[in-house]
Simulated assay, not measured.
Amino acid sequence: MTLRNSRPVLAWRTLAATWRWTPGSACQICASWQRDAVCDECQRRFLRPCHRCRCCAAALAGLNEVCGRCILRPPAFDQTLAAVDYAYPWDGLVTRFKFGGACELARPLADLMSEALWTAAEQIGFEPPDVLLPVPLSAARQRERGYNQAWELARRIGPALEVPSHARWVERVLDTPHQTGLPRAERLHNLRGAFAVTPAGRAGLAGRRVAILDDVMTTGATLDALAATVRRAGATAVQSWVFARTVSDDAAP
């Protein structure tokens, strides 16, 4: 896939350059006193290049573009872009952001994610989507957490790429159990009928290229279920954008 034109991406990179932590901040990883939420030294140390499956973003040791599981059972999404592995130190930041009420981490994580997406656009090329959708939480889970971490990332990344983000086009109609530690088959079973497209979404998704965004991909079951839902609503292509991809399906966030 190729970029339609450079204007959205250039605008994205320009705005991303302004997404810097307030001067006089401690690095969220090493605690050094400097400018950025994650200092340059930690980025050099922990943002390692990784060859990934084009479809699900699993790390690949060889030169293949698609992993064996995606060849045997292609998911409902076409491509996945991941910024980092779900490993130290990123797993700790995600846990604080997702479960510890640290919503202030949304900005630096979105900054790192936007840079990774920009790199992917330069290196492998991809067609920018028409619509960006955060993975929704159930009403009960959102009340418990206080915010939807996927939306906190999407509402910062979407404007930079000039892609409209919509938090109310899809909804989670089933409050599924926590998926932590469950195998892929059980996750898929729990997610049957979990998502629905709202009337506004049905009007807006038909014929559109869609990116669905989440903080972490483990087995891909949640993103697969949501991708299938938006395809049934008429989406012509679906990408998955995640901040972190687990090293294996057993490394659940």
Score class of each variant (00 low, 15 high):
246 T>Y: 06
170 V>L: 04
199 P>Y: 06
63 L>Q: 15
152 E>C: 02
147 Y>A: 08
63 L>D: 15
32 S>N: 12
237 A>G: 12
81 L>I: 15
7 R>W: 14
12 W>T: 10
21 W>K: 04
1 M>N: 09
98 K>V: 09
21 W>C: 12
236 T>Q: 11
221 A>C: 07
119 T>E: 14
15 L>P: 00
92 G>V: 01
47 L>T: 02
181 G>R: 10
219 T>Q: 00
220 G>C: 04
176 T>G: 06
60 L>G: 09
106 A>C: 08
212 I>R: 05
29 I>V: 15
101 G>E: 09
176 T>M: 07
92 G>D: 11
94 V>K: 00
166 H>D: 02
103 C>G: 09
160 A>S: 15
166 H>G: 03
240 S>C: 15
147 Y>D: 05
2 T>S: 14
117 L>E: 10
49 P>I: 06
190 N>F: 11
151 W>C: 06
16 A>K: 04
10 L>I: 10
235 A>Y: 01
55 C>P: 00
78 D>P: 03
134 P>N: 06
122 E>G: 07
166 H>W: 11
207 G>Q: 12
187 R>W: 07
214 D>A: 04
191 L>V: 10
11 A>E: 13
155 R>H: 13
71 I>H: 11
11 A>I: 05
105 L>V: 08
238 V>G: 02
155 R>I: 10
116 A>V: 02
183 P>T: 04
39 C>E: 03
179 Q>V: 06
42 C>D: 09
151 W>V: 05
20 R>G: 04
38 V>L: 07
26 A>N: 10
2 T>G: 12
89 P>S: 10
44 R>A: 14
103 C>Q: 14
128 P>D: 02
89 P>Y: 10
178 H>T: 15
116 A>M: 04
31 A>T: 15
228 A>L: 10
131 V>Y: 03
223 L>V: 11
101 G>N: 09
66 V>G: 07
8 P>A: 11
90 W>P: 00
30 C>Q: 06
225 A>P: 05
55 C>K: 02
17 A>G: 14
71 I>P: 00
13 R>H: 12
109 L>R: 01
28 Q>V: 02
250 D>M: 13
154 A>N: 05
146 G>I: 09
181 G>F: 09
183 P>G: 06
175 D>A: 14
233 A>P: 05
188 L>E: 13
146 G>L: 11
